[in-house]
Each structure stands twice: as structure tokens, then as C-alpha cells.
Nucleic acid binder design. Structure first.
Lengths: 209, 209
DNA sequence: ACCGTTAGGTTATCGCTGTTATCTCAGCGT
DNA sequence: ACGCTGAGATAACAGCGATAACCTAACGGT
């Protein structure tokens, strides 16, 4: 009956990071539910965790950093899943296609995180160089995969891997971001779209057939 | 000496729309300058015009509608410029390329409008069907151009114009939005990028060569 | 077994945002 | 001359991100 007993038990000293984890979980949940970072307030996150708003700031300097932390998790998984999908393919060319397929699917599964990472201007990467590094890690893997495909003569040898990688990125990202930004558009079945886009963006790069 | 004389002269009755135009101009200016709609407050717009914030609401129901009105202008010009660029080309294929070129250039010239129109979720088009119609007008022109190219045997005859148009849109939009969202990325010269992307996305669609 | 330190929370408050309700007052039609 | 109307101003609201000041329970050293 003591109201104290109903309250959140004070976390033991060493485990101060427990709340941090709960905040991240709650934020991820609310972000997916609301679908818009502007509608997820610090107060709402705090309430979801069962804590007052200023407590958030013990664990994250600003709201942006909290949101960024959530997106960063997603980004690491995006890289991991793209590479994993490519590794399961027998040849470099289908590996590139599998990479694109995984990329689009991942974006559609985490739309708000994808939007914040790839569809907003700079928000995060103002000065933090390490973020930019991590952010380009997945891209570097793509460049490497393109390079390998050229070496294996699966793509035309006169191509510049860096430029080609950007082109492939633009295709997959373009499709992903349009699907996210324009959900009301009369899209044909998504899987058909993905296959056409990937096929078309790779077809122009094949050795003279 | 009367402070009244220093104030904005009260607009004559009939010309209530004059302020509306000034508000749109000021908003467009601040949007381009700040580069982020979140940093352009209604109060700032009002101050730029020389008026108090609530007066804005005589002419626009909400801030979103004001922003949308600005973006809508841009969108009409995007459609117009794409079609104009295509009309200057001799054949359907280079017409499609010109269309893409104009599209990317336009996005880079109006980055925040482009971002709001194509890189944010739904914000505007919740219920307004007329907006969606106008928004897809440019896309319909693209579908028609693809159709014409297929008829002229400039593209493979087995292709579905609608799907192809989406693929081309995804490429151009993907490049545009990445350039806008990631200005710090070590991009190669933009014109090279555009040409490569357009060439690559069209090359896979040509008749069996 | 005590006690100062400190981690991990609280309450109160700030300045800013978009927005609304209310008031003022110039100019037109009668 | 008078009142209606429309275009602006003033005042105020709730909610936002963020900060300052404070409280208190748990731990470590003696």
C-alpha cells in the first residue's frame, strides 16, 4: 500500500545502463508505431518507460542523440544483412542483386529509421566524423563487391567501381525511399518492382553481349 | 511621429491577396536560406513580411498548408521543365535522358522543396486527393514518354511502361535525394554521376543489341 | 556500523513552437 | 452619418526540448 512500492525500484548503482536500454527499446517501439520522429516526444518516451522526461537526459545529451542511437543500431544491421545476403549467392552478379534486395527489404521494415538515416539532411553528421565512417562502411562493402564483380568479368571492365556503386545505391535507395515516402502511390507488387529495378540497373553494366 | 505611420499601411479591402503573395515569397526565401523547414518558424515568416504571426492564419489554415503551397509551385515547375527538356531532344531515348537530367538538376536547385515533396512521409497527401493527382501528373508524363519510346522501338517491346517509368524515376530520384541528404559524401563530379546513372538505367532497356 | 559521496532519479521552470480567441479599426455601401 | 466587414494586432494556450536545483537511496571506506 505504500505508494513507494508501486514506483520503479531504484536501479542499483552499477546498472545505470539498464534504463538506457529501456529508453532505446521504448523509442524504437514508439518510432515504429508513430512512424514520424516529430510525433515521438521526449515526454512520451519517458512515460513509456515509466520515468520523467529529464531523466532521459541523464543517458542522452539531446533527443537527436537518442534518435541517432536507435538509427545507428538499424544501420549496423542493414550492413550485416546486405553482406550476409550476398554471401549466400554463388556468383558476384547475383550477389549484387541479393545485396540490393536485402537493402530494400530492410528499409521497408524500418521505414522511420531508414528515413532518418538516408532521407534527412545531415541532421546527425554535422561534425561527428566517426559517424560518417560507419555510415559509409556499408557503401565500401558495395564498392568492394562491384570491384570483385568486375575482376570476375561479370561486369564490363572499363567501369569505375566507385561510380557504379553509387549508381546501384541510387537505384535501390530510390525505390526504397519512394515506397516509404509515397505509400499512397498505386505501386505494382513490390517484389516485381524490386526485381525489375535491380535487373534493369545491372543489365546496362554487363559485358558487351 | 505617430507610431501608426511607421506600421504597415493597412491593405485596401479588395487586395487581401497581396499579403498572401508576400508570405509565399518570404517563406520560399527563408526555406532556401535555412535549408530546413523546422528552422523556419511561422513567427520568422511573419517578421520577414513585417506582420504578426497570427496574421499568417488569415491566409493559410496551418503552417503545413503554407509550406505545401510553396512546394506545390516548385512541383509544377519540375513537371514543366522536365517536359520542356524532353521536347528539345530529337528522339525518344535522348528525350528520356533529358527528362532525368532536368529532374535531378531541379531537385538540386530546390533541395528543401524537393525533400518535402519526395522525401517525407505523406505529410501533405493525407486526404487531399487533388494533390495526389497533381503529384502524379509529372509521373504520367514520364509513363507516356516511355510508352512512346517503346512504340518507336527505342526500348524493348516486351517492357511494361508503368514499371519501367518507376524504375527510371527511382534512379533519378535516388541520385537526387542522396545528393541532397548526404552533402558530405565524397561525391565525384555531379554531372558525371548523372550521366552514368541515366545511361546505366536506360542501357538495360534497349532492344537486344 | 556509520557516513560522506555520488548515481539516478525528482520538481519547477525557461524559451520557443504552432495555434486560437478576442479586440481594433479603417474603409465601403447605404 | 452609420454600421458592416475584412485585415490586421494583442494576449494567451498547450506542448515541445532542454536546464537548474534538489532530493534520496545505495555503495565504499573507515
Amino acid at each position: 500500500m505504500n505508494p513507494r512500492s508501486a514506483e520503479r525500484p531504484r536501479t542499483p548503482k552499477g546498472q545505470g545502463d539498464r534504463l538506457r536500454g529501456e529508453i532505446l527499446d521504448a523509442t524504437r517501439r514508439l518510432l515504429l508505431q508513430a512512424g514520424d520522429v516529430a510525433e515521438v516526444s521526449v515526454r512520451a518516451i519517458a512515460a513509456e518507460v515509466g520515468v520523467t522526461a529529464p531523466s532521459i537526459y541523464r543517458h542522452f545529451e539531446t533527443k537527436d542523440e537518442l534518435i541517432f542511437a536507435v538509427c545507428e543500431e538499424s544501420f549496423a544491421e542493414l550492413d550485416r544483412r546486405s553482406s550476409a545476403a550476398a554471401d549466400e549467392e554463388p556468383d558476384p552478379l547475383s550477389g549484387l542483386a541479393a545485396r540490393g534486395r536485402a537493402y530494400v527489404h530492410f528499409g521497408l521494415e524500418h521505414p522511420e529509421q531508414y528515413r532518418l538515416l538516408f532521407m534527412t539532411r545531415a541532421a546527425f553528421e554535422g561534425d561527428d566524423a566517426s559517424e560518417r565512417l560507419r555510415s559509409t562502411a556499408a557503401f565500401d562493402h558495395l564498392v568492394h563487391a562491384v570491384d570483385a564483380a568486375i575482376d570476375a568479368k561479370a561486369l564490363r571492365p572499363d567501369l569505375d567501381p566507385f561510380t557504379v556503386a553509387i549508381g546501384l545505391w541510387a537505384s535501390s535507395h530510390g525505390l526504397t525511399s519512394l515506397l516509404i515516402a509515397k505509400p499512397q502511390f498505386p505501386w505494382p507488387p513490390v517484389d516485381n518492382l524490386i526485381e525489375h529495378t535491380l535487373t534493369a540497373s545491372l543489365a546496362g553494366l554487363l559485358p558487351t553481349s
